[in-house]
Amino acid sequence: MMRVHRDPFEPIMVVLEADSPLSEYRKITDEILRRMPDEDRYPRAAAEAVRSFLLLRLGLHLGLRQKNLRQLRVCPRGHFPTLERRLEDMKCGELRWSDRDSGWEVLIPSVAFKNSGSSFFGQKPFRLILPDLLDLYKYLEAYIDRHRGVLLGPVDDPGTLFVKTVKATSKQAAYGSTTFYEAWRTVIRKRCSVATLFRLA
């Protein structure tokens, strides 16, 4: 029986085949904001839209593999960040507020990466202060403070930045590799289709 392997580029082919992939991503995030549901009337839909927006924005800023982005943990502002040694043990990174840099920092130990032995890391962690461009911090903080809790509902918090929408048929909030892949593909396909319709109208 022949095995059919999943093409890792399939979810973003519509973007990669565009004349300017970065501009295409920008169109998608702009479209998400334009069609943002009213948070007071539709809290879950608004939370899902902000999650989609951040999924693409952080994906662009960080350039991480799916696994590293999916397992990225979050430390709310004002809380004590996870010790680097603990992150090394868990082999995952964390988004936390940096008082020193007055910005949101992503810290990922080198052991969390597939190519951790590369000279690029030099056994040092990946560290990046996210730029507060185009209201990134506004939506990031709204997601951490409000929207993420709406998506979680009453289930246990897995501690990751990105969580699934908990429904009656699914009590697990943490993304798996397949569900994260599907979430990414759905965001791009849905928004690209809408953007195309608007251009043709």
Rank of each mutant, 00 (worst) to 15 (best):
A49H: 10
R77H: 14
E48G: 07
K138R: 12
A142I: 03
R57I: 03
P125R: 13
S98F: 03
A45L: 09
L130P: 00
P131K: 13
F80M: 14
H147L: 02
D101A: 15
L72Y: 03
L72E: 02
D99K: 15
L56W: 03
N115L: 08
G59T: 04
H61D: 13
W104C: 10
L133M: 10
R51D: 02
L134P: 00
T82P: 01
I108D: 01
S52R: 12
G59N: 03
L107E: 01
K67N: 07
G78E: 01
L56Q: 04
Q123D: 08
L72T: 04
I108F: 04
A46Q: 06
R70V: 04
R73S: 05
L58W: 09
F120G: 02
L136Q: 07
G78I: 07
K138C: 08
D89I: 12
L133E: 15
E84H: 13
D156P: 00
L54N: 01
G149I: 01
Q71T: 14
L140G: 09
L95V: 06
Y137N: 09
F53W: 14
S116V: 06
F53K: 08
N115Q: 09
E84I: 14
F126K: 05
L58N: 06
R65K: 09
A49D: 05
H147E: 06
R57Q: 12
R100Y: 07
A112E: 01
D156A: 14
A46L: 05
L62H: 05
D157M: 07
K114P: 00
G153L: 08
